[in-house]
Amino acid sequence: MNPAQGATLSEICADIKVSQIMSKETVFIKDTDSIEQIIELMASNPYHIYPVLNSEKELVGVIDQDNILELLFFERSQRNHHTHLMATKALSEKASSLMVHHPMTISFDANFFDAADLMIKHHIDYLCVVRDKKLEGIISKSDLIKKIFKLRGK
């Protein structure tokens, strides 16, 4: 189907799978990586969010720029932020202990709107696309916008 045949943009989008528009070449962090390796990775890549994978390539968490900055500047933060969990994270050296353990995921075969609904309703910037716990890619708001832009351009 294409717009010329009379299908609306929504109809086209409903047929698009998340797996078709996600970024597949994701830069990821290993759960055994040290904080130095993580910072180096972040310094040399433009992304905001990095998935954390274990040795079986399963998604176990995410680390984003906010997390790292929060930890690096933990000493400067307000007393309210000096919670036990934050202090423990600030001390930890490994990705597995300082990552966020509960990334939002979406199934490999979900469609465009499943992703868009989640992102808009809950103000989420990205979703990790998974199949059987394994990371397939990452889909962000800009992936959605790029796709729409391409479709409208036709």
Partner: peptide, 22 residues
């Protein structure tokens, strides 16, 4: 959490007693 600030100010959060406290 009451003493985390003190530990930080004295650079003691990552010390042996500091991490044991946590």
């Amino acid at each position: 959490s009451i003493v985390v600030k003190t530990l930080i100010d004295n650079a003691y959060l990552s010390s042996k007693p500091g991490s044991l406290m946590l």
